[in-house]
């Protein structure tokens, strides 16, 4: 995920509205993504839809850098969007926190 001078960053919301070590679903245009607050100011964003059977990843349990899908427990690495010890991948998006606000670069997702 390369961001440049030209990257479009969208303000999602203030950091305190993201509960710690949980995911929150964000809708924007055709995007349906999940933004995770890992604690200590670290945030991650991936597509909300599980590659297995479309489970809502924002509702999963967060453990360190991973989330477990709430439907059948697929484990996904929040940085890369790749399933851990399994096949499958979701898009991940660049996230930035600045001045207690969370920004996502939707167009740069990969």
């Amino acid at each position: 995920m390369n961001t440049t001078e030209q990257t479009k960053w969208y303000l999602i919301s203030e950091t305190h509205l993201f509960p710690e070590r949980e995911g929150k679903r964000v809708h924007f245009k055709d995007y349906d993504i999940a933004v995770f607050n890992l604690g200590n100011g670290r945030f991650r964003a991936i597509d909300n839809t599980c590659p297995h059977k479309q489970g809502p990843l924002a509702d999963g349990i967060v453990a360190g850098e991973n989330v477990f899908c709430p439907l059948h427990a697929l484990k996904i690495d929040l940085g890369s969007g790749c399933a851990v010890e399994a096949n499958g991948k979701v898009r991940s998006y660049p996230v930035q926190v600045y001045n207690a606000k969370v920004y996502v670069a939707f167009d740069e997702g990969e």
Partner: peptide, 12 residues
């Protein structure tokens, strides 16, 4: 987010 949400160009 509203469809017409404005983006910040570059880094916040």
């Amino acid at each position: 987010l509203p469809k017409d949400k404005e983006a910040l160009i570059g880094s916040p």
